[in-house]
């Protein structure tokens, strides 16, 4: 049981990482990784949404009519996303980040990771493992987001979390790094590194 739980938590972060292995959620990871702060808030939001919607869907999994299960899942996910958005807007500290992330918080609804985990895991498992699986998927997604954002903020704006690092020693900002194509190139590099590190991921 213990090793099974461990597997549930570690799999979405490493061997089954939503971005580098399943290649899901690419769109939002291009859009919100310009700055670390935004990426961190996005990572937390996705983690909360995947975790709680997996939990709720798992709790009601035996009552959901099979023909409308996707719609019910969507309603649950939409509820969680709107709640997260409302709370981000309500607090002074997160208001400006929510403004900066604008539509991408709302677009978590369409993030394939959320629906994918509910459909593949939560509907067939008990609530607690489902919650952990959802949270771990969000962490796996957020981890990649933060790695990409680290490089993009460092080389694009010369700062980390808004504090000058490279810009303090006279670095000229690289405009390409700020634009979405660079996120795609960085993601490619991360996938490459991940696959060469983990031989199981390579197709024969």
């Amino acid at each position: 049981m213990n090793s099974k739980l461990k597997e549930t938590i570690l799999n979405p972060i490493l061997k089954g990482n939503p971005i580098t292995v399943l290649v899901l959620g690419i769109c939002s990871s291009l859009a919100v990784t310009v700055e670390l702060k935004g990426a961190l808030v996005m990572a937390l939001s996705v983690t909360i949404v995947t975790g709680l919607s997996s939990l709720i869907c798992s709790l009601i999994r035996n009552t959901i009519p099979n023909r409308v299960r996707i719609i019910i899942q969507l309603v649950v996910v939409a509820l969680m996303v709107i709640l997260v958005d409302q709370f981000l807007k309500a607090f002074e500290a997160t208001y400006s980040i929510d403004k900066q992330l604008s539509v991408y918080i709302g677009l978590i609804i369409t993030n394939c990771i959320v629906m994918g985990r509910i459909e593949a895991f939560a509907l067939g498992n008990k609530p607690i493992p489902s919650l952990l699986d959802g949270l771990a998927s969000g962490v796996g997604y957020g981890l990649i987001l933060i790695i990409v954002a680290f490089f993009r903020e460092l080389f694009g704006s010369g700062t980390l979390f808004g504090f000058p690092v490279l810009s303090a020693i006279g670095y000229t900002n690289n405009g390409l790094v700020i634009l979405p194509p660079m996120a795609l190139i960085l993601l490619g590099c991360i996938i490459w590194a991940h696959r060469s590190f983990d031989k199981d991921l390579q197709e024969k």
């Binding site: 309603v75 709107i82 409302q86 807007k89």
Partner: peptide
Amino acid sequence: YTTLVCVLVAAVLAFVSQTLGPKQAAN
């Protein structure tokens, strides 16, 4: 079932929106 779920979700959202509305407006 779908009607109940929708009504329930709408109620939660309405409540949250009412509660957080003034804070959001202040921001």
